[in-house]
């Protein structure tokens, strides 16, 4: 069955910083510093999102960069597929 979407792992939290988002994983603990600026709000992945779903107004080049970023978050376990 195909995954419905992606979501922040229950062991992880994110917060907004000047550079973008700071992710924390209590399983390490681990940190991930993401220079996303204001492209994504900290609670964006608190609800299930489609892999290609981004906030309204995101440009095509920003979407391309964010897709790579989402892949990285999935690989590192900060996001998981639902």
């Amino acid at each position: 069955m195909a995954a419905a979407g992606i979501k922040l792992h229950s062991s992880c939290r994110a917060r907004q910083e000047g550079f973008g988002l700071l992710f924390y994983d209590n399983r390490g603990p681990r940190l991930l510093f993401a220079a996303t600026g204001t492209l994504l709000p900290a609670d964006y992945f608190g609800t299930v999102r489609g892999r290609d779903e981004f906030p309204a107004g995101t440009s095509d080049s920003e979407k391309k960069a964010l897709k790579k970023f989402v892949t990285q978050l999935l690989e590192k376990g900060f996001l998981h597929e639902q």
């Binding site: 917060r15 907004q16 910083e17 000047g18 700071l22 603990p29």
Partner: peptide, 16 residues
């Protein structure tokens, strides 16, 4: 690396 972001200043500590 991450030092660069830390030196920009964090809005609060990660842990305390």
């Amino acid at each position: 690396m991450s030092n660069k972001y830390v030196e920009m200043g964090m809005r609060s500590p990660v842990n305390l």
